[in-house]
Amino acid sequence: MPARLLKISGTGHPSLSERRFQALGTDCHVLAVEASAERMDGAVEHISAAHRRFTRFESESELSRLNAAAGGWHAISTDLEALLRAALRSWEETAGWVHAGVLPALLAAGYTRPLRLGPSPAHGPPGPPPPLPTMLAVLPGRARLRAGTAIDLGGIAKGWLADQLAGWLAPNCLVNLGGDLFARGGGPDDAGWPVRMAGVTLLLRDQGAATSSSQRRSWWSAGGRQHHLIDPRTGRPSESDLAEVSVVATSALEAEMWAKTGLLLGSEQAPLLLIGRTLGFWLGMQGEAGLPLQNPTRPAGRETSVNARLPTQAVSLSD
């Protein structure tokens, strides 16, 4: 995949290497202080390879083969095993709110292929998914999905990969995979990695951050507005009064997990949950000033997730 390399070298300052590339269906951004070009290349290749293995849109990916083998035991790699265990842990820690088994609901909502190709027509939701531990069993080197179920690793994979890659890349680096990021070390100035979140600049050091939003990866269908954040209680896109939740936590995976849970819970309960479990959070209400409004007259099948307010660049929706 094309990647852009920026290396800044100055007298008395550590060199900062940077890569921007597309993988996991989104923008990826990797920065490191005093890291070799080979190391940076390795980071890009690692994430690109992970994309090929864990995408649900390629029938030959490792995840798709696991989904296709539902009903029986299936051999899996060490990485997929770790990801599945992370999915089970996330389900347990969030009491079921982060549920990797909502793929049938995503398909029913019309998210059957990369959104840049347009959504499919939505049809009736399949109902709430069964508890994840009853549909997914993991043993060393193999896993079994209950027949008729399927999983999507989505944000869990991004958070987990960001943590893993940051641990490998360099003692002072930042890995941002589609907004799920981990900042390791003190950054270029040793003051913390400056990261934009909720309109302020945070200085993160050995901390993760993530934003969960129903404003992106959203589309209109005959059944109304659809988006990718499925409420596991209903099997439908969440109707939370929150449009966006950003979280700072001890890892990217934790941040992703609690951001999604907070959004699904809604503005009344989210603070009660997030105060004790995160290092910081921001709640953005639906329709609040500054948050993008969706246009119900926009033709179905067109992506409507452009957000002019937030400091983001063009978002690829290829996954």
Binding site: G179, V195, L203
Partner: peptide
């Protein structure tokens, strides 16, 4: 942006140019 921002003391803020953002 409007909303409710809650940061613990372990999360610092700064007036410097951010290198990246969580919004993606």
């Amino acid at each position: 942006p409007e909303g409710s921002l809650n940061l613990s003391p372990s999360v610092k803020t700064g007036d410097v140019t951010p290198v990246t953002s969580t919004y993606a």
